[in-house]
């Protein structure tokens, strides 16, 4: 492909393989924005009544005070929920989840984690997710579902009291919501780090190939 004299025919006959279809890319970046808004406003809300012996630095919170943080949180939640629901429906309907994320075998995960930690994990074909990716992506989808459900339960603990019961009680739902946030932050760090280590994966998430 480095030839300076590629003909139109050649270009047409060897189109770069689409790694990330347009719907995945659009929803990914909408979700990225929504997550940052939710996390930073969530930290603001957390600071009003911390669950643990620490608060988040004020500079890393959104909204200025509790009321502002809540406004942001309950605005961005629509972005998360609508985009997330569309993602789940499309992912299931197109078979993308099944094709990309399954199967997940313990031996496969163990093997790829070891390879990743020794920098021996290959990325020749970005269309096939390795087991580290499969576990992380499937896991973060699950966490996403749990954080939305626990959040909805806390938002409507009377109307959706069955949802709160699912998590135990209201205070427990709060802790679960917090730990899911922590898991998402941990994912975010690993995810961004790995994307930077394999820049072509970042490119694929932007231009598709």
């Amino acid at each position: 492909m480095s030839s300076l004299t590629v003909t139109d025919e050649q270009v047409g006959s060897t189109p770069a393989k689409v790694i990330q279809p347009a719907w995945v890319r659009v929803m990914h970046w909408i979700n990225a924005l929504a997550m940052i808004l939710m996390i930073l406003s969530g930290w603001q809300i957390y600071n009003a009544s911390p669950l643990f012996g620490f608060s988040f630095p004020r500079d890393y919170t959104l909204g200025g005070w509790l009321g502002g943080g809540l406004l942001w949180h309950f605005a961005a939640m629509w972005l998360v929920m609508i985009n997330g629901l569309a993602y789940l429906v499309t992912g299931l309907a197109t078979g993308r989840f099944r094709k990309k994320l399954l199967p997940i075998t313990p031996s496969g995960v163990l093997h790829d984690v070891r390879a990743a930690l020794t920098f021996k994990l290959g990325h020749a074909d970005l269309t096939v997710y390795n087991y580290v990716q499969r576990v992380l992506y499937a896991g973060i989808i699950l966490i996403g579902v749990i954080i939305v459900l626990s959040g909805l339960g806390m938002w409507k603990p009377v109307q959706l009291h069955w949802l709160v019961s699912l998590f135990g009680d209201y205070p427990t739902a709060r802790y679960i919501h917090f730990f899911c946030m922590a898991a998402i932050c941990a994912f975010l760090v690993i995810h961004v780090l790995l994307a930077l280590l394999v820049p072509k994966s970042l490119r694929a998430m932007i231009i598709g190939r």
Binding site: L40, R58, D59, T61, L62, G63, G64, G68
Partner: peptide, 10 residues
């Protein structure tokens, strides 16, 4: 406080 609602992400 109000001004911070929107601009608070310093």
């Amino acid at each position: 406080r109000r001004r911070f609602i929107a601009g608070g992400a310093s």
